[in-house]
Nucleic acid binder design. Structure first.
Lengths: 332, 332
DNA sequence: AATATTTTTGCAACCGGTTGCAATATTCGA
DNA sequence: TCGAATATTGCAACCGGTTGCAAAAATATT
C-alpha cells in the first residue's frame, strides 16, 4: 500500500541505509546521493513511517494529552493551545478522555502500549497521585492546572489555588461584605479544596464576618444554578465566591430568576476569566487565570523533560489577578 | 526500559510466538500455556507494544481526529463524545488542529506518517475536498458536520444546512416578521453558504418581505457582536437568522447595549442549540442540531469503514428542529 | 604522486512484535 | 489400544525502519 524505504532504495539504485540517512538529519550523506534519493522518493511519493522508526529510535513523538475536563469551555482553549503548541514542535497529541475513569493504572498502561514519549495531564480536579502514576511508570509527565506542591513529585504548572481563595476573600472584604460564602465545585476536586482552604484561612479571625460554604455537584452551569436555588430558600449571603466561572453563571441565572439583582442584592466573584465572563450579558467579576502562559510553559517543560527525563520535578506557579466587572459592588 | 515479548518468553521458558499468541485473541493457545505466559507477564509487568505490532498487522488503531473548530463550545462536546466513543471501541484519537492550516496535503502526509487507520474530519467549515484528500491518499475518512452531497465522494455525517436555512426562514415567516436578515458566519464556511442558500431560497418569491444579509468574520461572540453593532447603525431588520449560537449571543449582547430589547424590537434565531443557549440569562431560540447522534453515527461509520475500506461513500443526514425559547416573538 | 585523513556508503544485525509452515503433542473414534 | 484427526508449539522470515562497523571513495597533506 504505502511506499517503503526499500522501494525507494531500489528505484534510486542505492542501499536502504542511504535512503534512511537522507531522511534523518544529522546523518552523513553526500549531496549527490541526497539528490538521487530525493528524486526517487518524490517520484514514488514516499514518506517515512514514523512508527516503524520509533522502534529503533525509541521515540514516537507522541504525547498523551490526558484530561477529564470536557465540560468546561476554558478547556477548549486549553486543547487548542496544547495541540497547536505540540504540533509546532513536531509532537503529536494522543487525546485521552478520563471522564468516568478513576483508575490511573489503566491509562498508564494504554499510554505505554502506544509508547508515548510523555504525557500532559491537563486537569484541575485530578489528584496529584494520578500524574505520579505516570512518573512511576517511567513516563515523563507534566501536570497542568494541577495542585501545586512545594516539594513536587512531578512537574506541575498552574496557579496557586489557595492564594486565589485568599485573593477572593480579600476582594470581598475590601468591598465591605459582611456575610460571605463559598460556593465550591465538587468537593473531591483539588482546585475546590485549595480555593476553599485559602478562602477560609483569609477570613478566619476577621471580626464581624459570617462565613458559610457549600459545594455544587460539578463545575457546570446546572450545578451552580441548582445549588444557588437551594441556597436562596434561606436568606442568602451578601456575596459568594463561586468555584469557577461556569458555576458563577449558573448562580447568576438562579439569582436573576428569584427576582434578586446582582450586584445590588448579592455579589458574585468567579474564577478563570473564561471568554464568556466578559460577554456583556454576563459581565462577571472574576479571577483571571493565565491559561496561555500555563499551556506554553507546560509544553516547554515537557520538551525539556523529553531531553532529560531525570530532571528534578518543579512547580511553576503563575500569578492570578482580579478582573473587575459588574457582579460585585464597587470599592467604598 | 519497557518489558518486551522476549523477556516474557524467556521467563516463562517458551517461545516468543507463544507469548505473542497469548496476547492475540483468536490464536491457538492451550490453557496451560496461557497460564504460564500470563504469570510471567504479570510478574514482569509486561504489556505489548501496540506500535510494534502494527508493523506486521498493518493496523495501529489510531484514528486522526481532525478539526479546525477550536473556538465553538459545541466542539468541546464533540471532542468529548468522539474521544469516549473511540476509546470504547479500542481506538485512539490522534488530535490534529487545522487552525491556520489550508493545505490538506500536509495533514494527509502527517497522518500517513503515523499510519492512522482512518481519519475523522470534524468541521462544519472545511470544504468537501479536504476530506477527499484523505480518501485519495487511501486513508478511510468520515467527514462529520460536513457538507452533504447526494452523490457523496466521502462519507458525510451531519445535517442538511440548506434545509436548516429554509427552516429558519419558515420560522420567521410564521411569526409575521416582514424585514428579515441573515447574519452569517464566515462566508468561506460551507455551513454558512448552505444555510444562506436555503434561507434565501425559502424567502424568494414571498411577497412583502424584505431580505438583507451580511457575514461576520468568524463563528464567535466578538464577531457576532461587532457585526450586529455595525448593523445597528442603520435601522435594523425585525428579525435575524444568525449563523450559529455563539454568533447569536454576540448579536444579543450588541442589541442589549444599544438599548433595544429582544424579542420586542428585534428577533433572533440561532443554530446549534449549544448548552449555553438554554442558560436562563441567554434563553436563545435556536435550531437544534443532534450532535450526539452525529458523533455516534460517525464513529459507527468509521468502524465499518475500517472493516471494508472500499465501501461506497454515503451521506447520513439527521433532522434538526426548532427549539422555542425567548428570542423570537410568539406565533400569532 | 604517494600516503594519511576524512567522508560516504553498504552490510548486517537489531527494534518488538506477527504469522505461515512444519513438527510435535493431544484428543478422538473404533 | 492404535491410527487418524485436531490442536498446540517453535522456527524462521518478515514488517519498515535505524545504526555500528568496516570497506570504499573522496579529499587533504607533504
Amino acid at each position: 500500500m504505502a511506499i517503503t524505504l526499500k522501494e525507494v532504495a531500489e528505484r534510486a539504485g542505492v542501499s536502504r541505509s542511504a535512503v534512511s540517512r537522507t531522511f534523518t538529519d544529522g546523518a552523513s550523506v553526500s549531496s549527490k546521493m541526497r539528490r538521487k534519493v530525493e528524486k526517487a522518493a518524490s517520484e514514488l511519493g514516499y514518506s517515512p513511517n514514523a512508527l516503524a522508526s520509533s522502534l529503533t529510535t525509541g521515540r514516537t513523538k507522541l504525547i498523551g494529552l490526558v484530561s477529564n475536563n470536557f465540560h468546561n469551555p476554558i478547556f477548549l482553549e486549553v486543547f487548542d493551545l496544547f495541540t497547536r503548541g505540540l504540533q509546532d514542535r513536531g509532537l503529536r497529541p494522543l487525546l485521552v478522555n478520563l471522564t468516568n475513569e478513576t483508575d490511573a493504572a489503566a491509562s498508564v498502561r494504554m499510554l505505554r502500549q502506544y509508547s508515548v514519549d510523555g504525557a500532559v495531564v491537563a486537569s484541575s480536579t485530578l489528584p496529584p497521585n494520578f500524574a505520579k502514576a505516570f512518573r512511576d511508570a517511567g513516563v515523563p509527565v507534566v501536570h497542568s492546572f494541577g495542585r501545586f506542591s512545594s516539594s513536587p513529585q512531578v512537574h506541575v504548572i498552574g496557579i496557586d489555588n489557595v492564594e486565589c481563595g485568599r485573593m477572593a476573600a480579600r476582594t470581598l472584604l475590601a468591598r465591605g461584605y459582611k456575610t460571605i460564602a463559598f460556593l465550591g465545585g465538587p468537593e473531591s476536586a483539588t482546585s475546590t479544596q485549595d480555593r476553599f482552604a485559602g478562602f477560609m484561612q483569609q477570613l478566619s479571625g476577621v471580626p464581624d464576618i459570617t462565613v458559610t460554604h457549600s459545594f455544587a455537584d460539578a463545575y457546570s452551569f446546572d450545578a451552580g444554578r441548582a445549588e444557588m436555588l437551594r441556597l436562596l430558600q434561606a436568606p442568602p449571603a451578601e456575596a459568594y465566591f463561586c468555584g469557577d466561572d461556569v458555576l458563577s453563571i449558573g448562580a447568576l441565572s438562579a439569582i436573576k430568576d428569584s427576582g434578586l439583582s446582582v450586584p445590588d442584592d448579592i455579589g458574585i466573584i468567579g474564577l478563570n476569566d473564561m471568554e464568556m465572563a466578559r460577554w456583556q450579558n454576563i459581565d462577571l467579576t472574576t479571577i483571571h487565570q493565565p491559561i496561555q502562559q500555563i499551556v506554553q510553559s507546560s509544553i516547554e517543560s515537557m520538551v525539556t523533560l523529553l531531553d532529560d527525563p531525570d530532571r528534578q520535578p518543579e512547580s511553576r506557579i503563575f500569578a492570578c489577578s482580579v478582573v473587575e466587572r459588574g457582579t460585585l459592588r464597587p470599592l467604598p
